[in-house]
Computed example of a mutant assay.
Amino acid sequence: MNEYGHKAENMVKLAERRVFSNSFTPLYDEGMALVERAAEYLDGDGRCEAKHLSRNASALYAAESMRLTTRLMQIASWLLLQRAANSGEMTRDQVAAEKAKVRLDTASAQDNAPCWDELPGSFCGLIDHSLRLQQRVRAMDEQLYGDLAANDAIASNPVSNQIHLLRTAFGRG
């Protein structure tokens, strides 16, 4: 039971229904379109615009390009996993196991970094859009897998593993 008196499994089912329904399609389409738009920009206009940046702005552009690419590939991986589950290609457990490899926390220096104001507006727009999309995907991920993510963090922590073993051995856990 949660603090509202509802079974936690009911909440997961609502989140699953959202992901495994047609309401997921617009998010999927938006994510994949953003991946494509970013790739086109970075290979085309972005490459040309980057040549005109100062040395410091160019270094920031390179770092943010890598962050943007990483963020979008992680989002795309998450979306593809959910689509595979939605279509029945993978079970929820298979998706959860693969999803553990996906990171939805790629940050950005954003506008507080020196030389940020020198970056091309189109590039900054892609970064902003990717960060907003990452937040939406992350929120959906927490609705679906929140408890699993917490358990995975504990399970992957060697100190927590040892404490758990000690508690179990001494009948306290």
Rank of each mutant, 00 (worst) to 15 (best):
L14D: 08
L14V: 04
A15S: 13
A15Y: 06
A15M: 06
E16I: 00
V19E: 11
S21W: 03
N22E: 12
N22T: 13
S23I: 14
S23A: 12
S23L: 12
T25V: 13
T25N: 14
L27Q: 09
L27K: 11
Y28L: 15
D29G: 04
D29M: 12
D29P: 00
E30V: 09
G31D: 03
G31A: 02
M32R: 08
M32P: 02
L34N: 03
L34P: 06
L34E: 07
V35R: 05
E36N: 03
E36D: 14
R37I: 00
D43R: 09
G44S: 14
G46M: 03
R47P: 00
E49T: 05
A50W: 00
A50E: 07
A50I: 04
N56A: 14
N56C: 05
A57I: 14
A59T: 11
Y61V: 00
A62D: 15
A63Q: 15
A63H: 07
M66I: 09
M66H: 14
R67N: 14
L68T: 09
T69M: 01
T70W: 09
Q74I: 02
Q74M: 09
Q74P: 01
I75T: 03
I75C: 10
I75A: 02
A76L: 05
A76S: 08
S77F: 11
W78C: 09
W78F: 14
Q82E: 13
R83N: 11
A85Q: 07
A85M: 05
N86C: 04
S87H: 10
G88F: 02
E89C: 04
R92T: 11
D93K: 13
V95P: 03
A96Y: 02
A96Q: 02
A97T: 05
E98N: 07
E98T: 00
K99P: 01
K101Y: 13
K101C: 09
V102A: 01
R103Q: 10
L104E: 02
D105V: 04
A107Y: 11
S108V: 14
S108D: 09
S108Q: 05
Q110N: 14
N112L: 14
N112P: 04
N112M: 15
W116C: 08
D117G: 13
D117R: 15
E118S: 09
L119E: 02
P120G: 03
G121R: 12
S122Q: 12
F123W: 10
F123H: 01
C124A: 15
C124Q: 15
C124S: 10
L126T: 08
I127T: 04
D128Q: 12
D128V: 09
H129I: 00
H129M: 01
L131F: 02
L131N: 06
R132V: 12
R132P: 07
R136G: 06
V137Q: 01
